[in-house]
């Protein structure tokens, strides 16, 4: 069976890179009594994966860690063990168990909800956000490791709303179509004709699609 943990990443630990977090979680498992399953082969390691990598500097209350267990444990035990093995800034909110054949959490992710707290010029960004929503096409340059490509990012934003200096948005997050919140913010700043303001980006949910096609938080799938 597999344990699916939902945890947060806040405070100073937002600057821990994804790669470092992976190694860190492996060690955290070793500090627990959880019956973690190890890979076969020359250099055995825990069979684990994250639903989605979080960029360095962003905080989150919805990170998903998917790990294989050799035998079942209770929810209470799994939570207690993981909480004692992790610092408060990597708080474990919840756990659920799925069958080994269950699709990987990584494959289920389709979208992500973010809250962007804007510290300067929030009003100008909010105006640009309204203009963004009214447009059919907003071109932006998406950089990946290998390429730089101008794409229309408008369809990649599922929705967006504002509340004072908080921008709430749901963005596509699949291998083919992804819009990252920092690119959105940069684009909005350019539309507003201002420098990208200081902001705090928080991931609040990872979203998949239920059988009915409904957008559903990953832990509820």
């Amino acid at each position: 069976m597999r344990a699916i943990f939902r945890f947060g990443k806040i405070g100073r630990l937002r600057f821990v890179s994804h790669l470092d977090l992976q190694r860190y979680m492996q060690r955290a498992f070793s500090r627990t009594e959880l019956p973690i399953a190890f890979s076969q082969g020359f250099n055995p390691h825990p069979v684990m994966s994250f639903a989605s990598a979080l960029a360095m500097g962003w905080i989150s209350e919805y990170e998903i860690l998917d790990v294989k267990l050799d035998k079942p444990v209770t929810k209470e035990f799994a939570l207690k063990e993981m909480r004692s093995a992790l610092p408060e800034e990597l708080y474990v909110y919840d756990v659920k168990f799925v069958d080994d054949r269950h699709a990987s959490m990584m494959a289920l992710v389709k979208m992500s909800d973010y809250e962007i707290k804007i510290f300067e010029n929030a009003d100008k960004i909010m105006d640009a956000a309204r203009e963004f929503l009214l447009s059919d096409t907003v071109m932006a340059i998406r950089k990946t490791k290998s390429s730089e490509r101008e794409i229309n990012i408008r369809p990649l934003c599922v929705y967006m709303s504002s509340q004072e200096n908080l921008l709430k948005t749901r963005l596509m997050l699949t291998e083919a179509d992804t819009l990252k919140p920092d690119l959105l913010l940069k684009t909005l700043s350019e539309m507003a004709g201002i420098e990208t303001p200081r902001a705090e980006i928080k991931r609040v949910k990872l979203i998949g699609l239920a059988k009915s096609g409904r957008e559903t938080p990953l832990m509820e799938l």
């Binding site: 100073r12 600057f15 821990v16 890179s17 470092d20 500097g57 992790l86 610092p87 800034e89």
Partner: peptide
Amino acid sequence: IDDLMTKVLKPSRYLGSEFG
């Protein structure tokens, strides 16, 4: 300090709050 973290090569050097 956090402000500088976005500009340095390896922020994990300055974070503290490690387990232990």
